[in-house]
Design a protein around this nucleic acid. Structure first.
Lengths: 232, 232
DNA sequence: CGTACCATTGATCACTATCAAGCTACGTGG
DNA sequence: CCACGTAGCTTGATAGTGATCAATGGTACG
């Protein structure tokens, strides 16, 4: 791998402030690989051999316990996952699988740890990334702990609508089945929750949702920056 | 504040690897203050002026939304909180209040950010701390998303029993009311959940719990390092 | 054209929250 | 020392929320 192959990766917040040499050192041992959809990349409990960077496609993070399974998050280009496990050299707490055919960069964990010991700019970038991950997880936790299923759904719809341009219309970015798991409910329940929202001007046509009465949805959803904003 | 005043703080993982000068620099502007019980220290949404270190006592982290409230975690000596907000210079996602009378060290956020820019050892220590916080939150989230209330309770009891010496007996470290909120349920429900566990050899006497049949509880609780272990 | 998978709906059940009442322990003030 | 109020815990009754099971219809893909 040469660094020139991946300007988008070089441009990641995480790598932007590194020196060219360090970046080259990291990339030298890295693999860029294309995986088919629905392929298991890592399994929780395994040890962290690589840092993963999603370059194309989409990766689902999920967790299992006692035959149950829950989606913990989605990773889109350009994003990394399992940074914390790599840093701590600790077992993964989550599993990951491709959702679509995906191009993924694998950076040996050893090298990441080595470079972060040597390059304090990289160390600072990691801090920023980890702090973001932490705050994201806190928000997810608040969402689940403080809201009902319908409230979570309404807020998520508002979020999708905003990030898709604020046209009052949105496309569900995943299967309803996946979406349900993300929201911490069953597919049947998601179906009913969408019906519950119809009186609030929410019209569903397959994976297209129209929000005809944003005010009503917001009154129900009560979105707040401290849970629903990606940044802040 | 002089650094010699607080050997325990100096011994924190977070500060251990700093040079004496850097540590002195941090401590110079810091306040060590004693607060009464039930005092609000920070409110979610506020901006991060200080990094907090609990030296004595106990602090509850909690979050609110739409008149609802949930305990997000507890901080015991010697532990820090809201590190991520300080680093990112972002608003708090959680509120904090003292549970008991508590001695707390307040380090100006400005200084923390300054020192972490200058001292790469400190930066690395922050990485380790943040990674721990992140992984802790992932575990909390898995716990809530994958388990029922009784399962969460059973696992928590096993955790308390282990950290209190593994004698088969444990003292509930908080009010049942708080414990319920930590576990994501109502006090009434906690009461009933404890009754549900009686057939599994769980005897409750006020805040003392005896586990007379560890095997039975474990069969129900199915504890796993990937959710229930503090380390790993 | 059939198979497989997803989404929806209905019926039912399990779990959790809410509301109300009563109990106990504790601290205060008479 | 006792009466009282307060707060925390428990229990019962009930309602609400979400999960499970089963059946159906639609759609994509081979």
């Amino acid at each position: 791998m040469r660094s020139s192959d991946l300007p988008e990766v070089r441009d990641l917040q995480l790598f932007r402030s590194m020196s060219e040499e360090r970046f080259a050192e990291l990339m030298q041992a890295a693999y860029l690989q294309t995986f088919p959809a629905q392929l298991d990349l890592i399994t929780e409990g395994d040890s962290a051999d690589f840092l993963y960077v999603v370059v194309e496609g989409c990766v689902e993070l999920y967790a299992c316990w006692n035959e149950r399974q829950a989606t913990m998050g989605m990773v889109h280009p350009i994003g990394t996952f399992i940074l914390a496990a790599v840093i701590k050299d600790a077992p993964f707490l989550m599993s990951a699988r491709t959702l679509d055919k995906s191009k993924i960069l694998l950076i040996p964990a050893e090298d990441v740890r080595h470079v972060f010991e040597a390059d304090s700019d990289f160390a600072r970038a990691i801090i920023s990334e980890l702090a973001d991950c932490y705050r994201g997880m806190v928000k997810e936790h608040k969402d689940l702990k403080l809201r009902s299923a319908v409230e979570r759904l309404a807020n998520r719809l508002l979020g999708f609508e905003k990030e898709q341009g604020g046209t009052g219309e949105l496309v569900l970015p995943y299967d309803k089945r996946k979406l349900a798991s993300m929201l911490g409910m069953t597919p049947e329940n998601l179906s009913r929750a969408l019906n519950t929202l119809r009186p609030y001007g929410v019209d569903v046509d397959n994976n297209v949702v129209r929000l005809n009465d944003m005010a009503a949805v917001k009154t129900l959803a009560k979105p707040t920056a401290l849970i629903d904003d990606k940044d802040t």
